[in-house]
Design a protein around this nucleic acid. Structure first.
Length: 506
RNA sequence: CGGGACGUGGCUCAGCCUGGUAGAGCACAGCGUUCGGGACGCUGGGGUCGCAGGUUCAAAUCCUGCCGUCCCGACCA
């Protein structure tokens, strides 16, 4: 056999990153592509992750006073037309419903019939229809702030799709708030971005940069868009969440007015913010290795899998009893407020079983055989460590340590990802080294290259466009934590006070 | 939406050039031997060869159209 260690996923990240991603999604049984163009089927192992994420995000929203509601999937075209920039941004990727029934055609096939008087679009986002409701709900400053969120599916008819990262239909939450003052709306925009930063860093163990989007990258119809940006293992940036200060644009479009304390009619200020199932793609690309996914414990579909070693019939019952007892004890332990999620996999299918769980990325695997029972022990493996570091520990030690172990995995994943980002983030002050940074050695089959480049930018969209056209590199964000320093724009040399983050992006 | 590649059991693919009624490996099911182990043997199930037309006595194979997937670009959470 070859010297090279065999990996569960082929090709490896290094060999072909996009293909590796596809294979990981498949091998981990998180999702698959559906018969419907551009849409995905999220399988239980992937959906469980979304559920645990959703539950925790929802709690965080509610802690800030947000309430959930649900608005229609269909939006009248006339609603979309109300905000000019908004139309511009979304019109070309809308699914449109034009008929309301099917009839048998001449060839026996079903054909659309019953044309709608006004076509409906399937929501690409819900600012307009929620704005319409807000205009009726809000009369007085006493109705404000209005803090609403909905968990929903949306459709954006994408040309090129990728499971979890960009599909025609995806799941997300969209928060929509209305405020009496500009400052309060801006504060809310920041507050929710901070929630997203915590979601990414504390739950998903994905370090993110927070900042403002440039004019070219902001949400259609927004005054400003703030974002969290993460670095994937191919050194490309992933926009993982956005929070928009909408100014009075949508209030104007939908007629959201209120009577102020001074008895004057005023136009309201609104925000919107969202994260989607794209986060799952980000998780895979941040933590995955050549053996599959690695799930951060805080969001993992399951935390621990127990793998009883069933060899001889006369021993099996004792092994299963010991296993079930351990499962019961584990499920009584709380991990960050929720009971540990434990799987028992008693299939007698040899090493394949172990590898399936490695590919799925479950944080902790525990093998239990007759020898372990004899010594009152378990044989434990951590997904974030090398398989050779698996070790035998007593059952009591395991039970008392498991929370610490999971927290340690969580911490390890975050620190690993942070170190990767740091080592691939550089300052640039001249164009030739900037160009070299973003130019692959092999142009035919580009190797993994680039990263985050912090460079000065004059603020002009011409410079931004020039760079984008030449290198396919965009301004990911104007970071909040960037320090003020005198410099000159990397493209045009005009004065600049701050560095922005450039990168290739998903 | 432009350029490229591809579509044959669940998966990876051979067969297509030189038409003659479908193959392998893996996976799956059963039995047995192994096994703290991605094991081995035997037996078995499963495919209208992406879809629709056309050419032909005969099409996975030739022709046309459509659909889908992946990669690269434009666009995007």
């Amino acid at each position: 056999m070859s010297k090279k260690e065999q990996t569960a996923i082929s090709p490896t990240r290094f060999e072909n990153y996009p293909e590796w991603y596809q294979q990981v999604v498949k091998a981990s049984e998180m999702a698959e592509i559906s018969p419907v163009r551009g849409c995905m089927i999220i399988k239980p192992w992937g959906y469980g992750l979304w559920e645990s994420l959703q539950r925790q995000i929802d709690d965080m929203f509610k802690a800030t006073g947000v309430k959930n509601a649900y608005f229609p999937l269909f939006i009248p075209i006339s609603f979309l037309e109300k905000e000019a920039e908004h139309v511009e941004g979304f019109a070309k990727e809308c699914a449109v419903v034009t008929h309301h029934k099917l009839e048998k055609g001449e060839d026996g096939r079903l054909v659309p019939a019953g044309k709608l008087s006004e076509p409906l679009i399937v929501r690409p986002t819900s600012e307009t229809i929620i704005g319409d409701a807000f205009s009726r709900w809000i009369k007085s400053h006493r109705d404000l702030p209005m803090l609403i969120n909905q968990w929903a599916n949306v459709v954006r008819w994408e040309m090129r799709t990728r499971v979890f990262l960009r599909t025609s239909e995806f799941l997300w939450q969209e928060g929509h708030t209305v405020h009496a003052s500009k400052q309060e709306a801006i504060d809310r925009t920041c507050m929710m971005l901070n929630v997203y930063k915590r979601v990414a860093e504390e739950l998903l163990a994905i370090p993110v940069i927070t900042g403002d989007k440039s004019e070219a990258e902001k949400f259609p119809g927004a005054e400003t868009t703030m974002c969290i940006e993460a670095m994937m293992q191919d050194k490309k940036a992933l926009q993982a969440g956005t929070s928009h200060f909408l100014g009075q644009n949508f209030a104007k479009a939908s007629g959201i007015r209120f009577q102020s304390a001074e008895e004057k009619e005023e136009l309201a200020w609104t925000t919107s913010w969202g994260v989607s199932t794209r986060l799952i793609g980000g998780l895979i690309m941040t933590h995955g290795d050549d053996n599959g996914v690695i799930l951060p414990p805080r969001v993992a579909t399951a935390h621990v899998v127990l793998l009883p070693i069933l060899k001889k019939p006369e021993e099996n019952e004792a092994v299963m009893t010991y296993t079930e007892e351990l499962a019961r004890q584990l499920r009584n332990i709380l991990y960050h407020g929720t009971p540990l999620r434990v799987e028992v996999d008693a299939r007698n299918i040899g090493g394949t079983r172990n590898w399936e769980w490695i590919k799925k990325g479950i944080p902790v695997r525990v093998e239990i055989g007759p020898k372990d029972i004899a010594s009152n022990a378990v044989f434990m493996s951590r997904r974030d460590l090398d398989r050779k570091q698996s070790r035998s520990v007593t059952k009591e030690t395991f039970l008392s340590d498991i929370i610490g172990i999971l927290d340690d995995i969580q911490k390890n994943l975050f620190e690993r990802a942070l170190a990767f980002r740091e080592s691939n983030t550089h300052d640039f002050d001249d164009m030739s080294s900037f160009d070299a940074f973003f130019t692959p050695v092999n142009k035919e089959q580009p190797e993994i290259h680039g990263g985050f480049a912090r460079a000065h930018w004059c603020g002009g969209s011409d410079c931004e466009t020039t760079i984008k056209n030449r290198l396919n590199v965009t301004i990911r964000c104007i970071p909040f934590d960037g320090k003020e320093e005198a410099g000159s724009c990397i493209e045009c040399s005009k004065p600049s006070k701050k560095r922005v983050v450039f990168a290739k992006a998903y």
